[in-house]
Amino acid sequence: MAGRLFASRLRPVIQIQRCGLLTVDRIGNREVVGYGYNGEPAYLDRIDFPCPAIRWKENTSDVMALREKEKGDWKKLSTEEKKALYRASFRQTFSEMEAPTGEWKGIIGLSCIIISTGVWLFLYFKVFAYPELPESFSLERRLAQLDRMKKLDMNPIDGPFARK
């Protein structure tokens, strides 16, 4: 009981130290703005979780000047400045995230290659590897075998649905 209580009180400190020490080299000069998808400072473009933990671009003098300007009246910002602010925080818009990538073309192509390889292997084995079928597989031999089975009354069908 005391171990759990002690561990639960230390967990936030350990997480802050781990995130602060291990990821400073990864995130660089970017600003941490939230909790993120899984609590680590990482950037992810996700439709189901639209708030990443850090900003997309590092803080440069241009971006910092725009951030100071955004603290004032937004009507004074031009459209290009608003777009630059958005692109400093996010890599893609929602429409860019939902846009088709064309990945299905490669999947269909690879599937066609695999299927055609299978067909060519089947034809190769059918022609070169498998032996000829025995004579008993010809149509006239099978009909003769059926006629002989009827004459010898092999495996007769008995019961109410038997035809004679």
Rank of each mutant, 00 (worst) to 15 (best):
E40G: 04
K76T: 09
D25Y: 12
L146E: 11
K71D: 04
C19P: 00
D48F: 10
I107W: 09
G36H: 09
G20K: 08
I107S: 06
A84F: 00
G72D: 01
Q15Y: 11
A144K: 10
W56A: 09
N29V: 03
E96S: 06
V13F: 10
D62V: 07
G20V: 02
M149R: 15
R30Y: 02
G28C: 07
I14T: 12
R55I: 13
K151Q: 15
T60H: 13
P52Q: 03
S95H: 09
S78M: 02
L123G: 14
R46A: 03
S116Y: 04
L85Y: 03
L143V: 05
V63D: 07
C51M: 07
G118R: 03
D73I: 01
L133I: 06
I107Y: 15
Y35M: 02
Y37V: 08
R142G: 01
F122D: 06
S111Y: 08
E135S: 11
L21V: 12
T79S: 07
E80F: 03
C19H: 15
S116H: 04
E96F: 04
K75S: 06
E40W: 08
E81I: 04
W56T: 02
L85V: 06
L121D: 07
P100W: 04
G39P: 02
Y86A: 07
M64I: 13
M149L: 11
T101Y: 10
A88Y: 08
V24R: 15
E103N: 15
L110H: 12
L77T: 02
G36F: 01
I108F: 11
E132N: 14
M97C: 05
Y37L: 06
F90Y: 15
E70V: 10
E103A: 14
P131N: 09
R87D: 13
I113L: 12
Y35C: 00
P100N: 06
E68Q: 13
D147I: 06
I16E: 10
A129I: 14
F125W: 14
F90E: 04
D73Q: 05
K105S: 07
L152V: 08
V63W: 13
E58W: 00
L146R: 12
N29H: 05
D25E: 08
L143D: 09
R67V: 09
K57Y: 01
T93G: 03
T101F: 09
V32F: 03
K105F: 05
V13M: 13
I107A: 11
P12E: 05
A99L: 08
M64G: 00
T101P: 14
V33L: 03
